[in-house]
Structure formats: structure tokens, C-alpha cells
Computed example of a mutant assay.
Amino acid sequence: MMNDKLHDEAKEIRAETAADAPELQEHDRVAELEKQLEEANAKALYAAAEVQNVRRRLEGEKVQAAAYANTGFARDMLSVKDNLDRALSHVPDGAREDERFRNFLEGIEATARELDAIFARNGITRVEAKGQALDPNKHQAMIEVPHAEAEPGTIVEEMQAGYMLKDRLLRPALVGVAKA
């Protein structure tokens, strides 16, 4: 009996508390849901920003890849240019007067001009060397040459031309540098 009475009193207390509790529980529940919503919004904004950053980076890489896709081919063509220049530099003075060689030499010169035009259209430029200060980003010093007129560190001899593809170095110029 006593147990029943205590049990009934506990039921009444629970009922009274439960009447007040839904408001408190609902308020706590709403606050919790708002907090979760804020966190979800922050995560969504972060994810959207990350996606945008990845998209921009990929676009930049795509542009770079397209701009420099022909780098390997351009490097290979430099040896052709070197060989044409070497052939033209070894032509004796009297060969141009000889009718048999004149057409041949004009053909080699026309080929060299066409290659220069192709290089220009594709953004391939020769690195300035002779008379310039040594720039380790564009020149590779092969020898030091005693020189009375040039300042030490100035390029006085070019052994092999260097080339740039737009703003990237394809091949450094191999040079001789003046020493004191």
C-alpha cells in the first residue's frame, strides 16, 4: 500500500514535470538543430570554396599544359636549327660565286629562315648572350676567357645558342665569360 502511494506520488510529480518539460525540451531541441544547421552551412560553404579553388587550379594547369605542350618537340627542333646554322657558317666565301653552289646555299638559307619563322610563331626566341652579363637562369658558363676590354662576368663568346619557349628556358646558352 505504501508502495502504491509512493508510486502514485511519483506519477503525479512526473506528470507535473512533463507538463513544463516539453517547452524546455523543444527549446533545447531547436537550439541543437540550429547549431547543426550552422555547422552544415559552414561545411557546405567550405566545400563550395574548395571546389572553386580546384576548378581554378585545373583551369590554370590546362592553360599551362596547352601553352607548353610542344616543349619536347621544340627542344628536338633546336638540333635541326644548330645543324643548319653550322652548315651555313662553314660555307667558304667563294662558294656563293659558283653557280653550282648558289642555289644549294639559297635553299639551306630559305630552310633556316622558315625554321626561324616557325619558332617565332610558336613563341621560341633566342637567348641574348654575347655582351650580356652572365645570367645563370639563361646562360651556362663553359669557360673563362681572359679579356682586356670586357668586364669580368660578361659573356664574350657563345658556343651554342640558348632558347626560350615563351617565358620558360628550353636550353641555356653555352658561353665563355670574361675574367680579369
Rank of each mutant, 00 (worst) to 15 (best):
A180S: 12
A133L: 11
K130F: 03
G123Y: 01
T154G: 03
A65Q: 12
L58P: 00
A150K: 11
L88V: 01
L134F: 07
G60C: 07
V80R: 06
G162L: 05
D28G: 14
A150W: 00
G131E: 03
E144A: 12
L45K: 12
M77P: 07
A18P: 00
N70F: 09
L84S: 04
E9Q: 09
G94C: 02
D76P: 00
A42D: 10
R29M: 10
T154K: 12
M159F: 15
E99M: 04
V54P: 00
K138Q: 11
A66T: 08
E144W: 01
E23G: 14
T17S: 13
E144T: 09
D116V: 02
E9S: 08
N83Y: 08
I118P: 00
I13K: 12
F104Q: 08
A133F: 01
M1V: 07
V156L: 06
A65N: 13
E59R: 09
L169S: 08
G131L: 03
G153H: 07
D85E: 13
P136Y: 04
R75D: 04
V156P: 02
L165Y: 01
D76C: 08
R86Q: 07
Y68G: 12
P146S: 06
Q140L: 10
E109K: 12
A133Q: 10
K138S: 10
I143E: 11
D135A: 08
I108K: 05
E109H: 04
A42W: 02
E50N: 09
K62M: 12
K62Q: 13
I108G: 04
T17L: 15
E23W: 11
R126Y: 00
D98A: 02
E32N: 11
M164V: 08
F119I: 09
P146F: 02
A47H: 03
A161L: 03
M164Y: 02
E149G: 11
L24T: 13
E157S: 09
A10N: 11
A141Y: 05
V145K: 05
T71S: 15
